[in-house]
Every structure is written in C-alpha cells, then in structure tokens.
Amino acid sequence: MLAAIAALLTVSIGVQVVRDRGWQPYQPQTALLWFQSGPLLKRVSLGFQNLMADTYWIRAVVYYGGIRRSVEKNRDFGLLDPLLTFVTTLDPHFKVAYRFGAIFLTEAYPNGPGRPDRAIALLQRGLEASPATWEYSHDIGFVYYWWLHDYKAAARWFERSAQLPGAPVWLKPLAATTLATGGDRQSSRQLWRQLGDTDIDWLRRSAQHRLLQLDAMDVVDELNRLVQRFTSREGRPPREWRELIASERLRGLPLDATGQPYALDPLTGRIDVSPQSTLWPLPWPREGTGPATP
C-alpha cells in the first residue's frame, strides 16, 4: 500500500518535471502588484498586518535578489520601491525594511535601481514613524555622503543622528570631519566598516569591496602623483609602465588587491584600476568631484 502511494507520488513528480520543461505559468509583461494601496491592504489584513508586512518584505528581498542574479540585459527594479512602501505602511516600525530597503534602492545600476532620492524618502518615513531611531538619520546622512556627495547635508544628518539616544560616540566627530573636509576616505572607511559589521554575507562582501576600492583609490592617487612628477620632468606623460617603473624606481608592476595590475593610459599617462579588475569602476570620477586626499 505504502509502496503504491510512493510509486504514484513519484509518477506525479515525474510528470510535473516533464510538464515544467515545456510550460511556464503566465507572467504579465510588466510585473503587477495585487493591491495598489497600502492602507487598503492594512485594512484587509484584519489585524495580521505585521505578518503581511513580513510576507511583502520577503517578496521584496526575493524580487531584488532575483533581479540582481538574473542575466537579463534590461534589469527593471520598478517594483522595489512600491513593495517597500507597502511593507513600511503595513508595519511602520519594520527597521530592517527601511535600512536594507534604502541600501537596495541606492545601489547603482545594474546592481540596483540607483535611486538615492527614493531611499531618502523611505528613511524619512521611517523617521516619522519612530523619530528616536538614530539609525535612520545616520543612513540618510550616508546616502548624502556616499551617493550624492552632498557633504553639508550628510554632516547635518550625522549631527542629528548623534543627538538621538543610543547613537554611537563616533558619529559626532564624523559629522565634524564630513563638514570640514568633505568626504574624506577615512570617514568613508569608518562608515563602511560600520556597515560591514553584520552577519549578512552580501552586505559584508559589499562593504569589504568598498574598503578595497578605497584602498585602491589611495594607491591610484599616489601613482598619479608619480605620473605628474614624471610629466613635469620629462615634458610628456609616461607611455608605458616600464618608463614609470624605471624612472620612479618602483619595485615592479603595481597590483591591486584582486591581483590585477593597475592600468596606465598610454595617451594621457593617467592611472586607474584595470577594467579587468573587479574593483573597476572606482566609486566616483576622480576629476572634479573626487575628494582630495588629506
């Protein structure tokens, strides 16, 4: 009897496997949300809005992660923002949804929708719901600092966050340095180290990646100073590494943290991380907007 049941179940699984090869459930061209309004959903959830928020949060995480992993050319993160709005309307105290939601939203294309403005709006809603949470102000400051390079605004938010109960002691000096020097790399390191202190693998990896990029930026700046020295001495930029290594007595071809040699532009002589390196491209263009090394 049991064997028969097991056999029939196996058959049904087999049939399902065969069917799944040739059949896909209908999926609309553009993904849709069932409910268009958070407040309506809240009412319909009959007291189970927190559970509903959790469900939508898991959906948002799966949605974001799914697109990040997909090989599609045209990635569309269009539903991310409405999903996060749902989650936070249903459960206005869902801290992780605000904080990680903001991280998802700010990630630049193709790793995310690259919408720091929406991230700030999301975090500000979190702040409205629980004004005493220092993390939201801190995160808004971070978005201004890292993604929008608005150091005045960043300093203001760090300052505000530092006033709130439970805020870490390093926030006050961070606010001060941000205001004084713009985005210096030391502050950036501090912020990323803080973010990287987590159990979530991808976030830790992302923070480590940013820290390596920050190191690489120091190295690139240092190498570019050598290039400048070479140019002013020789009257022309170096055409290849050999020239620079010989004249500046380098110990060989400089490699970045991933083991890739830095790239030297034979026309301008400018040095950057190699496009083959996973560190490429470095977070912001070094000309103009880049922060000065102290």
Partner: peptide, 14 residues
C-alpha cells in the same frame, strides 16, 4: 535563509 538577517522579528510575528 531567505531574509536579510533580522529574522527574529518575523519569527515573532509569525
């Protein structure tokens, strides 16, 4: 496994 950490809140809700 699914969510970005902070599963305690979801477990409690559930």
């Amino acid at each position: 496994e699914l969510t970005a950490g902070q599963d305690l809140k979801i477990i409690k809700d559930l």
